[in-house]
Design a protein around this nucleic acid. Structure first.
Lengths: 228, 228
DNA sequence: GTCTATAGTTTGATAGAC
DNA sequence: GTCTATCAAACTATAGAC
């Protein structure tokens, strides 16, 4: 694998580089309610919850604003549904990641974490960055899932340290670093970025193993120097 | 250095964990205009540009909303000034980072990058997350600084690869990972986090060296296993 | 520079016909 | 379920007195 910076986009002006509106399979919603969710996903990702009005949303759906209220009781409920979808999708990815021992567990979890952000960037941006617009009550389910995902990463790091296969200065800061670099993928990944989501996920998983201090002999040789 | 997760805060509900309103030295603004900037920094960081109205801002400053227009022509100009301060502060940190060879350069740059986000989290969050609310014209100066910072990191990685001291699969993805993990610090760092900004910066710099594939013998032994 | 007062627009949400 | 019509409140910004 080599650098492709010649093709890399200039620094993005928008909040999110991705454009395609996409909801995970199994979360598809039919009819007008689905249309509303999809257009809200696009608008909230681009402009934020307060930056997109109920009328902007209605115009995008080609309906009157009053019709929205036949499907959702308030604007906040539309956002809450997207935040829920985003966190459940992320958590489903994370939970499905399995590994026999700490190295494999960490690799699979980071792959899943990054893939959720690269495959569904709009959903991830809305779920991560607009959560604070929800009332405490409506935000809680997402916070529970988020705390669980973070705990899983923390557990894997401590397990690997205990087993002697990880060597890192500070597990807490490793959790923040690994989580954070993955979350940002949702902002910069887009159609002009010359990588596939899976490539990014694999490379970030390798970075996470390096942060964890996994000995090179315990990592596959596939991802080494770009000069090779 | 050891884990302090027993003291770590639960997953944050707010957009930003930090609270203290703080502008970098040398960027201090006197009088009412300064007051407006400080309150705007707090409000825009907490709720976003569209989530805080001109009246909210005036109330926080204990002035009438019309008085704001004696100091700034529009609400957008207030944000533009904060975005400018944030990016100039970040860029000043980055530029001041110096090193004789790639390993030292990378360590210093990442330290500076992380410190700018941990020492001025409100400013960093506003500069990073509200930039898209500005018109193209007003956003451009910040984008120029951002592109330059990213280029500096990219240059260091390529230099280290050419010198044979770095060994990493993909410099472009390493730039996104190292930048991203540092940017997120502004969101989670706050008064309840049991670390000092400098500790975070040091540890993240170590993580960056690991991502870059710097041989352990070229890294100082201070930051190794948490079980030591 | 700061105020009172207000213009003109947009906001989220509702009433009631079909 | 979708519409037309509308309400009451909040929005950014301005006019003009002091």
């Amino acid at each position: 694998m080599s650098d492709r910076s010649a093709d890399m986009p200039v620094v993005e002006r928008r909040r999110i580089a991705a454009e395609e509106v996409r909801l995970p399979p199994g979360f598809a919603v039919e009819g007008t309610a689905g249309r509303i969710l999809r257009e809200a996903l696009r608008l909230f990702a681009e402009r934020g919850f307060y930056g997109a009005s109920i009328r902007d949303l209605a115009d995008a759906c080609e309906i009157r604003s009053a019709t929205l209220y036949a499907h959702f009781p308030t604007k906040e409920h539309v956002l809450a549904e997207l935040v829920r979808l985003g966190h459940e999708n992320h958590h489903a990815h994370i939970k499905a990641a399995e590994g026999a021992e700490p190295v494999a567990k960490l690799r699979e979890l980071v792959r899943a974490h990054v893939l959720a952000h690269a495959d569904y960037p709009l959903l991830a941006v809305v779920a991560n960055n607009e959560l604070h617009c929800l009332s405490d009550e409506m935000a809680t389910p997402a916070l529970v899932l988020r705390a669980d995902g973070r705990q899983r990463l923390s557990d894997i790091l401590h397990e690997g340290i205990a087993a002697g296969v990880f060597d890192l200065p500070d597990p807490y800061l490793a959790v923040t670093a690994i989580s954070g670099m993955g979350m940002r993928v949702a902002n910069w990944y887009g159609p002009d970025v010359p990588y596939q989501p899976l490539e990014i996920a694999e490379t970030y998983a390798e970075f996470a193993l390096r942060i964890a201090g996994v000995h090179p002999d315990l990592r596959p040789g596939a991802l080494r120097s770009s000069t090779a």
